[in-house]
Amino acid sequence: MSGNGNAAATAEENSPKMRVIRVGTRKSQLARIQTDSVVATLKASYPGLQFEIIAMSTTGDKILDTALSKIGEKSLFTKELEHALEKNEVDLVVHSLKDLPTVLPPGFTIGAICKRENPHDAVVFHPKFVGKTLETLPEKSVVGTSSLRRAAQLQRKFPHLEFRSIRGNLNTRLRKLDEQQEFSAIILATAGLQRMGWHNRVGQILHPEECMYAVGQGALGVEVRAKDQDILDLVGVLHDPETLLRCIAERAFLRHLEGGCSVPVAVHTAMKDGQLYLTGGVWSLDGSDSIQETMQATIHVPAQHEDGPEDDPQLVGITARNIPRGPQLAAQNLGISLANLLLSKGAKNILDVARQLNDAH
C-alpha cells in the first residue's frame, strides 16, 4: 500500500501541473516587456503551470559599433537563445518575429505568432524639431536608422535628408537623439515604442507609400524545439490566425527572394473581405531603383483552434497545428507568387547589386 502511495506522490510531482516552463529572452527592456506579455497570456491559459524567465545577451546586443547589415552573420539576435533551447536550458524563446530568419536551424520551429501590433515605422524627432515631419525637416538634416530597408525607401522619398546608421537598443538610440546634436530624427518601429509606453515620442507614423515595413514587423514569434510536442501544444494558444497568415505570406515572399538583413526588402499586408493583399518591394541601397507589386488571394481566416493538420510540417519556419492547413498554404503560395513576379521584373539584379555594395563598404 505504502509503495503505491509513493508512486502516486511521484506521479503528482512529475505531472504537468508541477512543471516549471523556462522562457528565454534577450536582456533589453523591450525584450523583457514583450516576454512578460507572452508569459502573462500563458499564465492565464495555464494557471497550474509556473513560468521562469531567463534573460541573456546576444551577438546583436554586444556589437554596437557596426551596422547590422555589415556584421555579416545571420541570427544576430537569436543564436545564443537557440543555443540555450538546444541544450534544454529553456523550453521556449520569445523573439520579435522580424529577427527570426525565414529558414531556422534544424530542430527549431516557430510554435506561435502572437497578435500583431502596429507594424509601421515611426519617426521620433529631436526636441528642437518636435512638430515637424520628415518632409518639413531642414535641408541636409541627419536621420538615424539601423535599417537598409528604411534608408533606401526614405532616401527616395525625401532626397533633402541624409540617413546615417544608429545602433543600440531603444533606450540607447533615444538617448543619442536627445543628448547629442548629430541626429534631427530617428526611425523606429511603432510597436516597440508603444510597448515601452513611449507613445508621446511618436512624431509621425510612416504610411506604406512612404515606407513599407519589415517582414514580420510588429509581431512576436515564440520559438521552440520542433519535436517538443508538449510545448508546441502549450504555445499553440498564442497563435493569432490573421497575423499568422499575413506573416506566412510575408516570410514566403522574403524567403523566395532570398532577402535578408543586408538587402532592402519591404512588405505591406492587409486582410479585407476574405482577401489577403500582399505588397512587396525591393530597392537599391540608395533607393534610386525599385520594383513594387501587389497581389491578392482569397483566404478564409479560420477561428482559433479549428482542428489543424496533425502532421505539422513547417511552413517558412512556422508550425501551427491548430490552424487549418489550406489557408496557410494559400498564404505561402501568395508570397511565392509575388516573389516570382518581382524576380521576373529584375528584382534579383537589384538585390545582387545591393548585396555587393553593402559587402564592399
Rank of each mutant, 00 (worst) to 15 (best):
R355P: 15
G259P: 01
N349M: 11
A347D: 01
T319Q: 01
R201W: 09
E52Q: 07
R201I: 15
N340C: 01
Q29P: 10
I63P: 12
F77I: 04
G48Y: 08
G287Q: 00
I21P: 05
L351Y: 11
T41I: 12
V143M: 09
D307Y: 11
W198M: 15
K62R: 07
A347R: 15
R201V: 10
Q180H: 14
E73W: 04
D121G: 04
K70S: 07
F163A: 12
A320S: 03
L154W: 06
Q296S: 08
P324S: 11
G317F: 04
K128M: 15
G216I: 00
L100Q: 09
I53D: 09
K74T: 07
D121R: 02
E242L: 11
Y213N: 10
D178Q: 07
T41N: 09
N171R: 10
K157M: 12
L342G: 05
A191D: 05
V20W: 08
R26N: 01
C211K: 00
I318P: 00
L285I: 10
L220P: 00
S57A: 06
V39E: 08
S57T: 08
I110G: 00
K98L: 02
S165H: 11
E139P: 01
V222M: 08
I113W: 05
N169L: 09
E52N: 04
G280W: 01
L343Q: 07
K79V: 09
P241D: 07
E86S: 11
Q155M: 11
F108N: 09
V301C: 07
S337P: 02
I231L: 04
K140R: 10
I113P: 02
H126E: 13
T145Q: 04
R355W: 15
H160L: 10
E293H: 13
E139N: 13
N88F: 12
V93E: 00
R167E: 02
P264Y: 01
G24I: 04
L81W: 09
V142K: 10
I166D: 00
S69Q: 12
V39F: 07
Q356K: 11
Q292G: 08
R164E: 14
T102L: 04
Q217W: 02
I54E: 14
K43H: 09
E52V: 12
I63D: 01
R32D: 05
T294L: 09
I63E: 02
H126V: 07
E179V: 14
L220D: 04
V202E: 10
T294G: 14
K62Q: 15
P208N: 02
L92D: 00
L338H: 00
I71W: 07
G197S: 12
T319V: 02
D121T: 02
L170I: 10
Q296D: 04
A112T: 09
E223G: 07
D121K: 02
A122R: 03
A249I: 02
D233W: 03
M212Y: 02
T136Q: 10
T190D: 09
C114L: 10
L351E: 14
S284G: 11
L134N: 01
C211E: 01
H199Y: 13
Q314R: 03
H256S: 12
T298G: 03
F129V: 09
R22L: 14
V235R: 02
H239A: 11
A226T: 08
T25K: 05
I166F: 13
A31P: 00
V93F: 04
Q34N: 09
A214E: 05
L161E: 01
G24N: 00
A320W: 14
S141N: 14
P313L: 12
L232N: 13
I166E: 01
L97Y: 00
S147R: 05
K140E: 14
M196F: 14
K27N: 14
T66I: 14
P313V: 13
E80L: 06
H256Y: 08
P159G: 09
P159Y: 06
G107T: 01
T66Y: 06
P105M: 09
I33Y: 15
R149S: 02
G218D: 01
P138Y: 07
S45P: 09
A219E: 05
G281S: 15
H83P: 06
A226V: 12
V282H: 05
E242S: 04
F158P: 03
S69C: 13
V39P: 01
A320I: 01
S75F: 00
Q50M: 14
V235H: 00
T269C: 15
V202H: 02
Y277M: 11
S290P: 10
K132V: 10
R175E: 06
G335S: 01
A249G: 02
V202G: 09
V142L: 11
D228W: 00
D99Q: 01
E179D: 09
A360S: 09
R26I: 00
S146I: 09
A214G: 08
T172Q: 02
R225V: 07
I110T: 05
L351G: 01
R321N: 06
S141L: 10
P309Y: 02
P47H: 10
K74M: 03
P241S: 14
F253E: 00
Y277Q: 01
V38C: 09
Q181S: 10
L329W: 05
V23T: 03
A360N: 02
L76E: 06
K87T: 12
E250C: 02
H305P: 03
I71F: 11
P324E: 03
L254V: 11
V123E: 01
I323A: 03
P119K: 04
N118R: 11
G218P: 00
Q194G: 05
R149N: 02
L134T: 06
G335K: 03
F253N: 02
Q29W: 11
G308Y: 02
G281P: 02
Q194Y: 05
D289S: 11
H305M: 07
R116S: 08
G192V: 07
H256T: 14
N349Y: 06
T78A: 07
H300V: 14
D359C: 14
R173Y: 01
H199N: 14
E86L: 11
P313G: 11
H305L: 11
N340E: 01
V20G: 07
R325T: 09
M56H: 13
D240V: 12
A303W: 01
K98M: 02
Y277W: 03
T319M: 01
A189S: 08
L343D: 14
H95F: 11
Q332K: 15
S337W: 00
D99W: 02
E117P: 00
G218S: 01
T269F: 00
L177V: 12
D240R: 01
A252W: 01
M212K: 00
T59M: 12
